[in-house]
Design a protein around this nucleic acid. Sequence first.
DNA 1: TCTCCAGTCC
Length: 602
Amino acid sequence: MNGSLTFKLLKPHNHYTILLKKSYTTAAAAAHFTQHALNHPLTSLQCGTMLQSLTNSKSVTKGQKLHAHMIVCGVLRNNTYVSTKLAAFYANCGRMAEARVIFDGIVLKSSFLWNFMIRGYACNGFSMKSLVLYREMLSFGQKADNFTYPFVLKVCGDLNLVEIGRRVHCEIVVCGLESDIYVGNCLLAMYSNFGDMEKARMVFDRMLKRDLTSWNTMIMGYVKNGDPREALVVFDLMRKSGLIADCTTLLGVLSACADSAAVKQGKAIHGYVLRNSIAHCNNFLTNSLIGMYCNCNSMVYARRLFEEVSRKDTVSWNSMISGYTKNGDAFESLRLFCRMVPEGAEPDQVTLIAVLRACDQITALHFGMSVHSYIVKKGFDENTIAGTALIDMYSKCGSLDCSRRVFDEMPKRNLVSWSAMVAGYGLHGRGSEAISIFHEMRTNSITPDEGVFTSVLSACSHAGLLDQGKEIFYSMTNKFDMRPGLAHYSCLVDLLGRAGHLDEAYELIKTMEVKPTVDTWAALLSACRLHQNVELAEISAQEVFNMDPKRVVSYICLSNIYAIEKRWDDVERVRGMVRRRGLKKPPGCSFIEVDKLHSFLM
DNA sequence: TCTCCAGTCC
């Protein structure tokens, strides 16, 4: 808060008029009181009232001045009423250290005080402390109430403490607070944070009263847990129950539309927003609409809306830029980025990361390098996500040395950064370096995830490192208690196939824990061609054609295998299949190889 | 005294 403003407001002639004016703000009133307090000692009741208004306006500096005044004139000593208000003030401003000192000095702690402290810790990033204080509250014999539980539940949700959350839920049921609408809504939010929408739905269905927040929490819960269709169903039920959607509802529903590519429903929401002039009050909503159109591949609509918006903020630009990249038009992303600064918008980290993605899509190395300079100039180069995007951009644009330099100079690396570096080496066919980065990552006590394993296995397969690849693959189950997914099996099939271990690859496909896809069999088929194994080629081709009868490349692959064996009848049979199914050969891929072989061998 | 709120990285 600006102290000088306080005194400007307090010129003698308007001293009282400020108070008398109906429109004076809480802050102005507090300013008046603060000045007054510093001149004359205040009673504890006056201090309490002032603290109340300062709590509402979160004026830290003024509150500190008042605190100093109270110390000087002794109001604070042994005064539970004022001390409680003061602790509540600090907690509400997020000054938990100060709040705690006051809190500890109060002997008779009211539930109001406990609640304010628990809330302060919960809402300012000290979730664990909040929970500890809650247990302390109970052990002090103070009962939790309808103001305590919302925050205890929030903390359980934030920290994903499933067991504790359930126990707290039981306590709530026992003391009859499940019917409290705030407590109920927080239960919904907690279970949705746990990813347990079934339980959330159970609580929701059991609620005697539901308000807009209850519905909004359920809609957002389904979206966050990857069930956008159900979110739209719930939204429909909500409308039928006669409730009017607010901004939060619309944000949730738009996310649901974006995630399920439901552009029709998205347009209906857009219409609703326009009819009710809701977008004016909320940039979030406009940006969400833009994001929805981008996710639904409706770039024309997204662009039209974007150009119509007079107050484009950085997020509007970011949504469009990443939208074009997602839809494969990286050039348009870069063109938009170039318009940003001249049109008065400030690129942020998100912008620059999105632009780097556009660069690696079209291997625009020089543009990427300029973006790199810009990142350094803006001081974003210490950011881990920006650094990771740079690693990715450089390796995809062919400059692995630059990737490595960025990687080495990063002040902080996370799993994704290591993963990007492993993938970079893999992409450039430098398998052994990929493996050594992978091992280095483990010595830095970073636990690999499925993505890193995919990268390192794919690096092994590109470089033909069979033994190392197998070792890493089996370490997934042996050392890391992870179940290999389709991508990992595919890498190993590819690796075994390329190395000529066709039978082993075949055995692997037959015994793998996930269902093989057409790509898995196609990988084996192409390995069969590499090592000329007709018998296995026929088996894998059959699997491919069963799953995807239109996969022309696989027909061509099989016919080429026959051609090498001079089995011309079979070559003709396969060509006939292609003709009968009316398939077209993709450009650059044809039977021409067979024709050459045919004439050569005849 | 309280709950729900968009966009970036493998």
